[in-house]
Nucleic acid binder design. Structure first.
Lengths: 256, 256
DNA sequence: CGTTCAGTTGACGCGGTTCAATCGAAGTGG
DNA sequence: CCACTTCGATTGAACCGCGTCAACTGAACG
């Protein structure tokens, strides 16, 4: 039951989507207008709510306007592995295959506000009809394709973390990635950003136990590499962290 | 220097590509013809050769006709993580972005024969002009899109293995996946398949040490779950292995 | 005020790594 | 045809990163 006040704040929330997409490829005025229209149809979800279950029929793809979510899978015995963390501006459920090729679900980690991406999707289909890529068309096909490549790169980084890095390196790498992504949507300053995650979520993402996440964060603080107070994270020595974690931010320049 | 004998054998090798793609979506006679034409332009690579370095300018996408390869990343200190194993019928370098969004390279693990996919790619672009999906068009856009989803599912499986499964479970899961994929291209019988990998490669894929891969394989043999002789793997109790590894093969039915 | 939840800490043990040595098969050159 | 080398598989012993178990703390909340 969105009222006018909701609409106003929702419209301002579409800024993260604009920042996210324009970082991949410049947006035309017509496209910008479409993005601002996302604020007109929003929904909210409480922490723990399932936003999407893959293999559960086609659901409407959407963008996260505020709050954090994750894609995850549960094992029969209760173990959980988180594939990716979703922050404002990220897309949910764009691979809307009717076939359940793999089983994963998207779950809200905080209170989440999402906007149906239907108006943009119409543009995606339209752009497919422009063989030249539609530089000036209102379509978003290129943006979504580049976004998919970016996300695959994040999955590859994650695999390296889980397969070949220590808990210390893993954690440093994740903090650098989240800082970079927060900066991309204008939600970070030079050194810090907000990370509304419990240590349990970090553990299930990093493939560690809660206890060890706690000790690893303490070690990072003890070595004066980070500071944490509440959900606020400060990177005290980003260069040193990058060396430890072998972190290289995604390079978006030259994207076609 | 391909001679006629080469061409003949190469043409027969395109069968794996046909099987791989037709499993995703039926192929028309025109499409089948295009696939058979892949055998006309082949290249070979020796074990260890780099087939592709992402972020190294656009390279021609291609299909593996025979031999195995992998996508991997190296850390500065020499640690290696393998993202995916590529078997005959798999595509190489289809995400041919000029931007090096992430750094990974594709390396031959055995002697490899690849075919340039240019003739199919022309079809991909053509299919994009058919808004209805082009059921009868010669394009391969749908196939490559479905293939991308399948590969993403494999990456997710891999993340679960690395993050939340024991060495025993990981190894069982991988063997089941490779058996399923081998069967998909007609390179496996009911219980066995060929796996031309060293234990070092398995270790770098599974995020384990060589020594521990060796011990884990021994445990699988000791418990009469598998048999290995040379590169031949036999799954003695696929059901039991699937329970141990929580393995569920990708479901391709209902793919649009 | 009791309850719940996230964070923290210590003790202990296991899964997996590291180091090092051995062995057989497959080249390779003299 | 035989030393010599190389490579992959194998084995044992010692070590350690990380998980598990359990207890405790403080803040938020009804």
């Amino acid at each position: 039951m969105p009222n006018r006040a909701n609409l106003t704040s929702a419209a301002s929330m579409t800024g993260v989507v604009f920042r996210r997409l324009s970082a991949l490829k410049p947006l035309s005025p017509a496209q910008t207008q479409r993005i601002e229209a996302l604020g007109e149809r929003i929904e909210t979800a409480a922490p723990g709510a399932t936003l999407r279950t893959e293999g559960d029929g086609p659901r409407r793809p959407s963008f996260i306007l505020s709050g954090w979510a994750c894609r995850q899978r549960l094992l029969p015995d209760g173990r959980r592995q988180i594939f990716s963390l979703l922050i404002p501006g990220d897309a949910v459920g764009f691979c809307a295959e009717p076939s359940p090729i793999s089983s994963a679900s998207t779950v809200a980690l905080t209170k989440v506000v999402i906007a149906t991406a239907a108006p943009l999707l119409a543009g995606v289909n339209a752009a497919a009809a422009y063989p030249n890529g539609g530089q000036d068309s209102p379509g978003f096909a290129d943006h979504m394709r580049l976004s998919a490549y970016l996300e695959e790169g994040l999955l590859l980084d994650h695999i390296v973390r889980l397969g070949r890095q220590t808990a210390f390196e893993r954690t440093a790498h994740l903090l650098l990635e989240l800082h970079w992504r927060s900066a991309l949507i204008g939600r970070a300053d030079e050194r810090g950003f907000s990370m509304p995650l419990t240590q349990e979520v970090l553990a299930d993402f990093l493939g560690l136990s809660i206890v060890h996440v706690n000790r690893t964060l303490q070690q990072l603080r003890r070595e004066r590499l980070i500071e944490i107070s509440g959900s606020q994270v400060v990177l005290l020595d980003e260069g040193q962290l990058a060396v430890i974690a072998d972190y290289q931010p995604p390079s978006l320049k030259g994207a076609s």
